[in-house]
Design a protein around this nucleic acid. Structure first.
Lengths: 133, 133
DNA sequence: TATTTTTCTTAAACTAGTTTATTTTTTCTG
DNA sequence: CAGAAAAAATAAACTAGTTTAAGAAAAATA
């Protein structure tokens, strides 16, 4: 399992994207704009595509177009969620759409993905647990 | 000038993207996922591309790839800003990167873009004004 | 220009989320 | 399996952002 994250000016990390088996992950922006870091959360076998080969793909096939279109939609959806929902709602959505991530990732990676502190996610979870009684 | 926005479950609008003269705007997601609305903020002349023609572009040329790549990077950057900055910092960034939007749009469209209430943006502005004395 | 409508500001009480510190639980390592 | 290290929970004091409501300013319209 891999993740892409950024570090903001205050040194805090934010997870942007996770990748599981057989998934593509990458960053299309030029390094100048923002620094994205790629990190293996679990032991992984990774194949990489050189920039030249990526350009060949880009120019000749619609695979890349489909990939980036999908990524775009995913990102857009995430932006909308983060703009319009509370962290609690976003957590529920994550449980609903990607339960396997919650099983597999340590809590602090989830909180970083949701854009809240680990402490606050823990609060959300204990509230959730109380509710289920 | 155009905008694309969503309406969340509680009926609140969030601006996702603005388009000025000679810019492309659109939504790639299928209607099933989320409803995006397109709205002209000022009197505009708009040209549209049919889905079939868009597919032709997509398959044969790299124009579309460049466009979507750029959009993706823009969106990603916005997500990072919203995750890691306060609304005040995001406003300053908007002033720095897109001052023309601030001139041109009513304040409530800006606040909706930043993901805060108009009331809170007004607070930010008055604080800013006090600082400049 | 007077009037109506829309946008913006201000204030006060509230809720969501942060920070820091301490304790408990879980996981890793010898 | 004991001890160390890492992750998670809890609490308390704080800050960022919301909500509601009322008034002021600006823009549109007659």
């Amino acid at each position: 399992m891999l993740r892409i994250y950024v570090i903001d000016t205050s040194g805090k990390e934010f997870n942007i994207l996770f990748a599981r088996e057989n998934q593509w992950i990458g960053d299309l922006s030029t390094p100048a704009v923002t620094s994205f870091y790629l990190d293996a959360i679990e032991k992984s076998i990774v194949y990489s595509v050189s920039n030249e080969n990526l350009n060949l793909l880009t120019n000749n096939f619609s695979t890349f177009v489909r990939y980036i279109k999908k990524s775009y939609i995913f990102l857009q959806r995430r932006l909308v969620s983060i703009l319009s929902n509370t962290a609690e709602q976003n957590y529920e959505e994550l449980v609903r759409l990607h339960p396997e991530l919650i099983q597999r990732l340590p809590q602090y990676h989830i909180s970083s993905y949701l854009g809240v502190t680990p402490v606050f996610l823990s609060k959300i979870l204990s509230k959730r647990a109380r509710k289920k009684d």
